[in-house]
Design a protein around this nucleic acid. Structure first.
Lengths: 346, 346
DNA sequence: GCCGCCGATGTAAACGATTACATCATGCAG
DNA sequence: CTGCATGATGTAATCGTTTACATCGGCGGC
């Protein structure tokens, strides 16, 4: 492998000069700069990242710790992070599927000297608790609401508000028996969406029937199965709010298979507004959240925090969600309404 | 930040001993090993990645270069890579959206000293040509068929065979006017799938009507728009093969909107077999490819190549695809058939 | 003509680990 | 008792950069 010394020797200058040419910080005479660039290009020289990191104490890399990644959500958040990171000359080191607290900690240690900051998504409540107790080595931004750990800022989705708005919407359409299909147990998003559902019912003075809360785990099949169970009830629901679109789509399939009409016999709504939602039959009413924006905001916040070390930004930010009404809920017309433009500073 | 020296001092030993304890290579007396571990844990010591990389010349990281990432495909391939990589103690550095050859080269340079090997996916033909001319710094595995560059192995999806099988299947159902919705221009997967479509028609002695090849770009909307154009033809097709499922789903929507029945009036098939395909109405016939396995294979191949430097593995491997017949194509029954178990050694 | 400044360049000390080699005590064979 | 292998540990060179500091020539102000 060819190093800065090789370039220096062949260009007849010292390593310091070569370094200056490439970093562009100190003044270098035009003559030598051209000469060095020439030699560098001919030799195919590229600075050794590790060596640079060692001396500058900056890696130009941000780490991303994600849970096991379901579907498009993962792509989108990474895309948002990667785009803003690269724009600032940063790389992205990803690591996924850290359910066990121990594994999570190991991953975190391994990042030492490899990243300048971290974006961590730990929707699992147990892992999250563990996280709070870890020594904070570098700037960190949490995805999802940071209930406890006061050591980092966070960015979350308006889960509660979104779910509340959706269920309220269903109520406004005249539904009184509204079921929900929940997300995975112990998942924070799932819990918050369920909370929004319950609160909306309570706000409207409707009873909370436990039989109408069917378990799911965010994938299509669990939505299908949950819908089948709900339809088999003595008094089946007239509306169904799934905690994400994948499950809603599974539910649509189950409902059709039972020979029922959507939305006439039963209204359906989802959460996430994945691209495919509008192409369903009928098009799926959902809560739109801009996942890529979530990643982008997180990256931006992290980069800011890294720029001004010390004055860490402990803000908890909530990304607004938008109600997208389509045919599956039986509402008269389409259109989107904004809700919860909240940006809560604690 | 706390270094190996701090641990050494507090434990009353030399840095060498601490290093030995952490790497576990050389023998260390049980007494001191415990002592060092104790101090290390108390101080929260973690070895500095960059420093290790510099001296050992190994980063324990593999780089992944991806094009702009559409939908679930991206998640899946990354998941496959990340899982196998982590199992071997490797990290994953991702970088996406490199369309421009210049940008791609810059990204590649920036990896120097940060990764031990690379997985590169460059479906764009122009970028791919550029790639072949780059000096090969480290072991590399290409995703998608490596037409030219003889400097690396590759793993590809059975695009041609999959499309061929699907179109042949439609022909066997009696269709003679079969349209296709193509993927993005200049995209290799798209080109190969189109090739498979054309060859299947030719093999069956059917004419190739250019009007039946509608442009798309892999997203839902383009599928919707393309289907509208096809339906407006004087002699509309009786079957439709979309180059991916997203476009097929957009097409389903357009066809319904035109008041036509699927599959009675027009049969529809896709490619990729995304999880949602089976939940469509009607369930979507598609070509199943295991994307996560693609990433996994790529990672495994790369890790192998890195383990035995020099004897690079220039094999071109093709991952088999499976025909998944559901209701949308109007075939009598369901079930999957394997095709193209090809693993071509060149 | 001298002084000081400035711009261009070189010298060498870091950065934090790994590891070949040296050192040293210990135990055991002869 | 001597010599040597062995196991535990320390010393110091090394990886490829960046950067504070030194050097040096030229130039303008006085």
């Amino acid at each position: 492998m060819i190093t800065i010394k090789d370039v220096a020797r062949q260009a007849g200058v010292s390593v310091a000069t070569v370094s200056r040419v490439y970093s562009g910080r100190d003044p270098v005479s035009e003559h030598t700069r051209i000469r060095v660039c020439e030699v560098g290009a001919r030799l195919g020289y590229a600075p050794h990242g590790a060596a640079q990191s060692l001396i500058t104490n900056r890696t130009n890399t941000i780490g991303v710790l994600l849970p096991d990644l379901y579907g498009e959500f993962f792509s989108e958040v990474i895309r948002g992070i990667d785009q803003t990171a690269r724009r600032q000359g940063y790389h992205v080191l990803v690591s996924s599927a850290h359910q066990e607290p121990a594994e999570l900690e190991a991953a975190l240690r391994a990042m030492r000297g490899r990243v300048d900051g971290m974006i961590i998504m730990a929707p699992d409540l147990a892992a999250r608790a563990q996280l709070a107790s870890l020594p904070t080595r570098f700037p960190t931004v949490l995805l999802n609401r940071s209930s406890e750990g006061r050591h980092a800022g966070s960015i979350a989705i308006a889960n509660h508000a979104g779910a509340h708005a959706m269920v309220s919407h269903l109520i406004s359409l005249g539904h009184e028996r509204i079921a929900t299909i929940t997300g995975s147990d112990g998942n924070l998003d799932a819990a918050e969406r369920l909370g929004g559902y319950r609160e909306a019912l309570a706000d409207a003075g409707l009873p909370n029937d436990p039989a109408l809360e069917a378990h799911g785990d965010f994938d299509e099949h669990s939505g299908f199965a949950a819908a089948e169970r709900l339809l088999a009830l003595d008094r089946p629901p007239t509306a169904l709010f799934a905690a994400n679109d994948s499950m809603a789509i599974g539910a649509l399939s189950a409902i059709r298979q039972a020979g029922l009409q959507i939305p006439e016999d039963i209204a359906v709504a989802g959460f996430d507004d994945i691209p495919l939602a509008r192409y369903m039959d009928p098009p799926l009413t959902s809560v739109h959240v801009d996942i890529s924006a979530l990643g982008e905001r997180a990256a931006r916040r992290l980069l800011d925090a890294m720029a001004q070390p010390g004055r860490g930004d402990r803000t908890d930010e909530i990304l607004p969600a938008t109600l997208v009404v389509r045919a599956s809920c039986g509402a008269p017309s389409g259109g989107a309404r904004a809700l919860s433009p909240a940006s809560i500073h604690s």
